[in-house]
Simulated scan of single mutants.
Amino acid sequence: MDFKPLIEARYSVRKYKPEILSDELLNEVLDAGRMAPTAVNKQPFVFVVVNDPDKLKQLHEAYSRDWFSQVLQVIVICGDHKTAWKRSVDGKDHTDIDLAIATDHMTLRATELELGTCWVCNFDPAKVSKTLNLPGHLEPAVLLPIGRPEEVEAPPKRRKTLSEMVVFNGY
Score class of each variant (00 low, 15 high):
135 P>N: 14
125 P>K: 11
110 A>N: 02
112 E>P: 00
131 T>S: 13
134 L>V: 09
120 V>E: 04
128 V>H: 03
112 E>I: 00
113 L>A: 09
128 V>K: 02
97 I>H: 10
128 V>S: 04
99 L>Q: 01
93 D>G: 10
97 I>V: 14
105 H>G: 04
126 A>I: 12
117 T>M: 03
138 L>Y: 12
121 C>I: 09
133 N>H: 10
113 L>F: 08
132 L>M: 11
95 T>L: 06
97 I>P: 00
116 G>E: 04
93 D>R: 03
117 T>H: 01
108 L>S: 01
126 A>L: 06
123 F>R: 00
125 P>M: 08
100 A>I: 02
114 E>Y: 07
122 N>F: 10
110 A>W: 02
134 L>Y: 05
109 R>T: 06
96 D>Y: 14
99 L>Y: 06
101 I>H: 12
98 D>Q: 08
111 T>W: 03
108 L>V: 03
105 H>T: 12
104 D>C: 11
94 H>S: 10
130 K>M: 02
110 A>D: 00
109 R>D: 03
122 N>H: 08
117 T>F: 04
135 P>V: 12
121 C>G: 15
111 T>N: 01
111 T>S: 02
135 P>F: 10
106 M>R: 03
135 P>I: 13
106 M>P: 15
124 D>C: 07
123 F>S: 00
132 L>D: 10
121 C>D: 12
96 D>C: 12
132 L>G: 14
130 K>Q: 14
94 H>D: 07
93 D>H: 10
104 D>Q: 15
124 D>I: 05
111 T>E: 00
107 T>P: 00
137 H>K: 13
106 M>N: 06
99 L>H: 01
122 N>V: 02
115 L>E: 04
93 D>M: 05
117 T>P: 00
107 T>V: 14
115 L>V: 09
110 A>P: 00
106 M>T: 13
119 W>F: 13
111 T>L: 04
98 D>F: 08
112 E>Y: 02
120 V>M: 07
101 I>Q: 12
125 P>T: 08
126 A>V: 13
135 P>Y: 11
137 H>I: 02
138 L>A: 09
127 K>A: 13
110 A>F: 06
134 L>P: 05
112 E>D: 14
101 I>G: 12
119 W>T: 07
110 A>E: 00
102 A>W: 09
98 D>A: 12
134 L>W: 05
135 P>H: 14
103 T>M: 05
122 N>P: 02
114 E>D: 13
105 H>V: 07
136 G>W: 09
120 V>W: 06
136 G>M: 08
95 T>F: 05
105 H>I: 08
104 D>F: 11
112 E>N: 07
132 L>R: 11
127 K>Q: 15
132 L>A: 11
110 A>Y: 02
93 D>F: 05
109 R>L: 09
116 G>D: 03
121 C>P: 04
133 N>L: 06
107 T>F: 04
138 L>Q: 11
114 E>M: 07
128 V>I: 04
121 C>F: 05
111 T>M: 04
137 H>N: 15
129 S>W: 08
97 I>C: 07
121 C>A: 13
132 L>I: 10
